[in-house]
């Protein structure tokens, strides 16, 4: 039986890199006695797949990992059992049962919502005004940028990959393209704006939190054709 786990990563957990988070959850499964399924072969590994790696230094309210468990596994108590053995900063938020034919979270990922605020001590004179300017910049129809990739550089239109960006007081919330098709990070969104103003971005200027990871609604259209991975899991049932 397939299960989708939503978890948050707060406080000191933001310093734990993606590979270590994977190892951490493998150990959580054993500590919490989750009847997780193993692959075959001489050194079996747990059937587990993470949705979208999160950069070191970023906190999150909505990370996802899919696992496969034995049918006998009592889902009702899973969340509680896991949370009893969590390390500081990690918490399971929800457990969703997936239909057997569900595709894994990783291939569903299409977008993610981030919230950014200035780190105390790094605020400009008028943070609200600054956020408004950022919002206006992303109100443009097209923003051509060059993105560094593993193979070199490529040109793309950033405006079409920033699905939402709105200033909220002294912070900003953005929904941006994520996953295998076009993976955009908040840093890139900020950099394009800074460049347009001819300014350098201090790498520590912002506190960044990922709030949700989305998949595309099958056949969905309109300005926001996305649903959180948690809900996307549900709607298959």
């Amino acid at each position: 039986m397939k299960v989708r786990i939503k978890f948050s990563k707060q406080g000191i957990a933001k310093f734990i890199g993606h590979l270590d988070v994977m190892r951490y959850f493998q150990k959580v499964m054993r500590r919490a006695d989750i009847a997780i399924c193993y692959s075959g072969g001489f050194s079996p590994h747990q059937i587990m797949s993470f949705a979208a790696p999160l950069g070191v230094g970023i906190t999150s309210l909505g990370e996802y990992v899919d696992i496969e468990v034995e049918d006998s596994e009592p889902i009702a108590t899973m969340k509680e059992r896991m949370n009893q053995t969590m390390a500081e900063g990690f918490q399971v938020e929800s457990i969703t049962r997936l239909p057997d034919q569900a595709v894994n979270a990783m291939s569903l990922v299409a977008a993610a919502r981030y919230h950014l605020t200035f780190r105390p001590g790094y605020e400009p004179e008028d943070p609200k005004g600054w956020m408004k300017e950022l919002e206006e910049f992303y109100g443009q129809k097209e923003i051509r940028i060059t993105k560094k990739t593993k193979k070199g550089q490529k040109e793309l239109d950033l405006a079409s990959l920033v699905y939402e960006l709105s200033a909220q007081g002294e912070g900003v919330t953005m929904v941006i393209s994520t996953g295998s098709e076009e993976n955009i990070k908040p840093d890139l969104v900020l950099d394009a704006f800074y460049q347009s103003k001819g300014m350098e971005r201090d790498p520590f200027a912002f506190l960044i939190q990922r709030e949700e990871v989305y998949g595309r609604i099958p056949g969905g259209e309109g300005p926001f054709p996305f649903l959180s991975l948690e809900k996307l899991g549900d709607c298959h049932e």
Partner: peptide
Amino acid sequence: PARYIGGEVNM
């Protein structure tokens, strides 16, 4: 950085 933050399981 995880070398310096503590917070491990069973701390």
